[in-house]
């Protein structure tokens, strides 16, 4: 008779489900063993290593970056988040004019964190930061200049 078989099968499957949820509930009221919630301001936030918070430009201790001003990121960006203001400066040693960035402007408010600029960068000058404290009171503060003031290109990047 599948009628009674259905009843007992149903009860058994319901009890199996209750066992699983009970296994979550009872440890949770005693301690915080399985609890996923982190109470952020009091407890430190744990951010995944590859979390895409915002685009930053890496600088070494001599205030040097790796951006050659090639504009690959600017071209790759689908919505015009990146603008690069650059100039040609005469290199004294070689006598050639080389591209030097003045400002690498990044509009965080427009960025969709799509990762295309970072994939496009030939010299690994820009990368993701895991910083997520991006809220501001003014939209203009979301426009950031990524290269530090007075920074210059690292030697050996362009070769």
């Amino acid at each position: 008779m599948s009628y009674f078989g259905d009843i007992f099968g149903g009860i058994r499957s319901l009890l199996t489900g209750m066992k699983i949820t009970g296994g979550y509930f009872f440890p949770s009221i005693i301690g915080r063993k399985y609890t996923i919630t982190r109470q952020y301001p009091e407890e430190p936030a744990v951010v995944a290593e590859r979390f895409k918070g915002e685009v930053v430009m890496w600088h070494n201790e001599n205030n040097e970056h790796r951006c050659t001003g090639c504009q690959a990121c600017e071209i790759a960006c689908p919505n015009g988040t990146i603008e690069i203001i650059w100039d040609r400066v005469l290199n004294e040693e070689t006598g050639k004019k080389v591209k030097v960035i003045d400002k690498h402007i990044y509009h965080l408010g427009m960025c969709t964190m799509c990762n295309l600029c970072i994939q496009a960068c030939p010299t690994n000058a820009i990368m993701w930061s895991t910083n997520f404290h991006n809220a501001t009171f003014d939209r203009s503060q979301l426009t950031k200049v990524l290269n530090h003031p007075g920074s210059k290109l690292m030697t050996g990047v362009e070769e």
């Binding site: 979550y24 949770s28 399985y34 609890t35 919630t37």
Partner: peptide, 13 residues
Amino acid sequence: RVAAFFQLRLGPN
């Protein structure tokens, strides 16, 4: 609160 504990959250606190 009970729902939160079942879902491994903390609930209103």
